[in-house]
């Protein structure tokens, strides 16, 4: 089963909650935690483990065979990203940073094998076996790369190929296709937010996306005592459900600094017990 922790706004505690839930649930279930926050994946830091079993993520890019190219210009005309250039008396060539790897150029080219397969490195994925029951799959975007979607997809594929009871996805902030790719097919989606105007604003964006995807949302309000913005109205508007309100806590801060999930750092603390309740709610749908 697939569960996703997301939330819209950055820095609300998505990774903290995802790593803690993964630790709790892996006590009973074979769990794969998927760090799909490919722009800055740091679940491995929160779990004090290492990135292992590196694999490259490549994206298609066209390679022209100028012996076969007739300079018809169809590839340039049809490139949705304007990544191809052809001067009046020249042959088409690629601006690699703009290419999305869609292969349209190859599909519209009337000549056989005039546009061949080439590829560029856009990211990496990792697979860390933390314990028999807890695996971590991490996607990491290459520095400077603009397109995060292919690396999220690669991490998702790698994670889903691991046989497990539970795949727990931790997404990037935002509501773009890199987030949607992680959310798709989830049984439960948890939106983590905070009671600030920014938090509520971005919560609405993610709830809109979930509505489009026809997915029910559970909302966790993290550090609910830090601000006074009204999140209840938005939650009601989108028929979502607040399943937990987590207070600010010294335990969480200390666990964060020491690199030990709070459910292990202080298993009997207030926050740990709230997280255990959330884990049992997940168990109910497992």
């Amino acid at each position: 089963m697939k569960i996703t922790v997301t939330g819209g706004k950055g820095g609300t505690g998505k990774s903290t909650i995802a790593t803690n839930l993964a630790v709790l649930l892996s006590a009973k279930y074979r769990t794969v935690l998927v760090d799909a926050d490919v722009e800055c994946p740091n679940d491995y830091i929160l779990l004090s483990t290492k990135l292992e079993n590196e694999e490259n993520v490549y994206l298609f890019k066209p390679k022209f065979d100028y012996e076969k190219c007739t300079r018809c210009g169809l590839c340039v005309e049809n490139c949705g990203e304007n990544a191809l250039v052809m001067f009046k008396n020249g042959y088409p060539f690629l601006m690699p940073t703009l290419c999305s790897g869609c292969r349209t150029c190859q599909l519209v080219c009337p000549e056989e094998d005039a546009i061949l397969d080439d590829r560029r490195l856009v990211g990496k994925t990792y697979h860390t076996r933390i314990s028999d029951n807890l695996h971590l799959v991490t996607g990491m975007l290459r520095e400077g790369e603009e397109r995060s979607y292919p690396t999220v997809l690669a991490a998702r594929r790698r994670a889903m190929s691991i046989d497990a009871d539970l795949h727990l996805f931790d997404t990037m902030p935002g509501t773009g296709n890199h987030v949607a790719a992680a959310i798709e097919d989830s049984k439960v989606v948890i939106a983590v937010t905070e009671p600030t105007r920014l938090g509520v604003h971005d919560l609405e964006m993610i709830l809109k996306l979930l509505k489009k995807l026809k997915l029910h949302a559970w909302v966790i309000v993290n550090r609910y005592d830090m601000g006074s913005a009204d999140y209840r109205e938005i939650v009601k508007k989108y028929s979502a459900e607040i399943i937990a309100e987590i207070p600010m806590s010294e335990d969480v801060m200390k666990s964060y600094v020491s690199g030990v999930p709070v459910v292990k750092y202080n298993p009997n603390g207030e926050v740990a017990s709230i997280l255990k309740d959330i884990a049992s709610r997940i168990e109910e749908v497992l």
Partner: peptide
Amino acid sequence: ASGGAGIQ
């Protein structure tokens, strides 16, 4: 152009 304006 929606993107790649400079290129065009």
